[in-house]
Structures are given as C-alpha cells and as structure tokens.
Nucleic acid binder design. Sequence first.
DNA 1: TGTCCGATTGGT
DNA 2: CCAATCGGACAG
Length: 196
Amino acid sequence: MKLLHSFYERPALNVASDLLGKVLVRKWRGHNLSGIIVETEAYCGPKDRASHAFDGRRTRRTETMYGMGGTAYVYFVYGMYNQFNVVTNVPDIPHAILIRALAPFEGLEWMRRRRQGQPDPNLTNGPGKLCIALGIDRQLDRADLLADRVWIEDGERIPARQVVSGPRIGIDYAEEWIDKPWRFWLKRNSFVSRKR
DNA sequence: TGTCCGATTGGT
DNA sequence: CCAATCGGACAG
C-alpha cells in the first residue's frame, strides 16, 4: 500500500529513518521497477547549509521543496546524474530526503539492461545509479507520490537496532553542518553506497 | 551574459 | 586521485 501524505508531512529527520525498508516503485513502460530503500539523507530546511534551500533560497529548481510533503524532488547534477528526493513537511517548509541506495526488488532484468552490463551489486547502490536503473529523471520533478508514475509502498518492518546513522556524503561545503549524523542506512546491507 | 561549482560516478 | 559535463545560482 502507498504511503499516505500524512507519512510525509513531518520533519525530514523523522521521515528519513522511517523510509528504510520501504519500497520505491517506478512505473516504467508498463512495468514496475522497484527497490527496497536501504540508505537515505535528510536535508532540513533554511538553516541547513547543505540544503539547496539554505537561507531560504527559493528558485525555479528549489521551489519543489516548498511544496506539499509527498512529492518528488528530482534534480540534475554534475552534468550527468539525476537525484531522487522526497519532499517532506508542510508547504513552505522546504525539507527533503535524498534516496541514496536501494536493494533491487522488482524488474531486475530491466534494471540490468538500463545499467548496461554493470554487475548486480552496482545496479542501485548510489543516488545517481538508482535513477538510471529505475528510469527517473527531471520529468518526475514535482510528481505526486500518491499518483501512478512513481511512489513508495510499505515494506517489511525494520527493527530500530538495524538502523545506523552518520554524516552525509558530498557536502564538504556545508561548514558546521558537515558532521550532522543525518544519513541513515541499514546495518550490513550490501547495497549501501559507502562503508563506514 | 560570464563564471564558478556541484546532495556523483567510474576509471587511473 | 581526477576528469566528465552541463544546468543552476549569482554577480555584474
């Protein structure tokens, strides 16, 4: 069953760990491509230097984050990769969660094809890679996660002892926010993007 | 309009 | 360690 808007309408820090074990589903050419979420990062609004919405920045790109909790925020970086995020909290509070890694679930053959020859362990073990595997790009920016292009479903319950946290990746510019332990992952899961 | 740089990845 | 590669953000 799809997660409801009420699930998303909370601070990103709370939602980020709750997303572990849930299933991200992309409807692509009539097939379901999906994976179990095993790694996330919370981006916590205007005070968070690592966030695109730091200091209240509100531009064409970041406007998505000011929308309703339960919409997709998809942006393009490094000239070649898309990043899939979930908007959380209520309108005008720009919280978001970056989905960093999945364990492939449905549509494995399509994912292999989309990732052209990459070994299975590398299909979805990074935020750029999972977007390629699932066919996620900026056309999905602002997509409603209760509609039928992309959504998140309930998965198996994850015991709290399996959840680990640590600093976020790739935000060396974020000064005192660099060390906040706002990255969450499943202990010993082989699809997590980096060891630690 | 010009410049700088990135919530990454894959290869050296 | 480093290049790829181009859109976003911001200065002028």
